[in-house]
């Protein structure tokens, strides 16, 4: 069961960040561990499989719509995908919705430190939350930008990685 590549590919599509940028946070493997501890593996296999077939499908429909069709609007997979987005952006695992837990939830499948309750994944994960760079700043309390930088005109230049290729 090596889902890391699948996880990065799907995460890149869900967040609009490049795989290298997600790897560059250094916490992707932690997120996958949280995910595979809390979410039943059959559901994860289905989720990654769905994304692989979306990519493979040579459809005229835009990929974004295919993701909405096949994943986000799927009662089983949608909440999982949304939790993946929230983990990347906010570094927090949110408890799965009540109705989802009734239907699909399973007891913890790995490290008991990860339970399906709301928690900050780790200190490093907080610092690597994507929301901060997306909003043009830095995580509050970390990645200090330096004296006086708050007086600069906010930059429209987001990472050149996201504007090229």
């Amino acid at each position: 069961m090596d889902w890391l590549d699948d996880f990065y590919q799907l995460s890149a599509a869900l967040t609009d960040y490049k795989v290298a940028q997600l790897q560059g946070t250094g916490v992707g493997e932690d997120y996958l561990e949280v995910l595979s501890t809390i979410i039943p593996h059959a559901i994860l296999a289905e989720l990654f499989g769905s994304y692989r077939s979306i990519v493979a499908e040579n459809s005229a429909t835009p990929t974004e719509q295919l993701i909405r069709d096949g994943i986000l609007s799927n009662a089983k997979l949608g909440p999982v995908a949304r939790n993946i987005i929230k983990m990347w952006y906010l570094s927090i695992w949110y408890q799965m919705p009540e109705d989802w837990r009734q239907l699909y939830g399973k007891p913890n499948q790995g490290d008991p430190k990860y339970q399906d309750v709301q928690f900050v994944v780790s200190r490093n994960a907080y610092i690597q939350g994507l929301v901060w760079q997306t909003l043009g700043s830095h995580p509050m309390g970390a990645k200090q930008p330096g004296y006086g930088t708050w007086g600069d005109k906010p930059s429209d230049r987001s990472s050149i990685v996201s504007t090229t290729s």
Partner: peptide, 22 residues
């Protein structure tokens, strides 16, 4: 030198980002 300090910090974060990528 004031903005240069900010550039040094950006340099650090860009270096660290690269170093986390296999």
């Amino acid at each position: 030198l004031e903005p240069a300090v900010g550039t040094m910090f950006r340099l650090k974060y860009a270096a660290q980002e690269l170093m986390r990528i296999p």
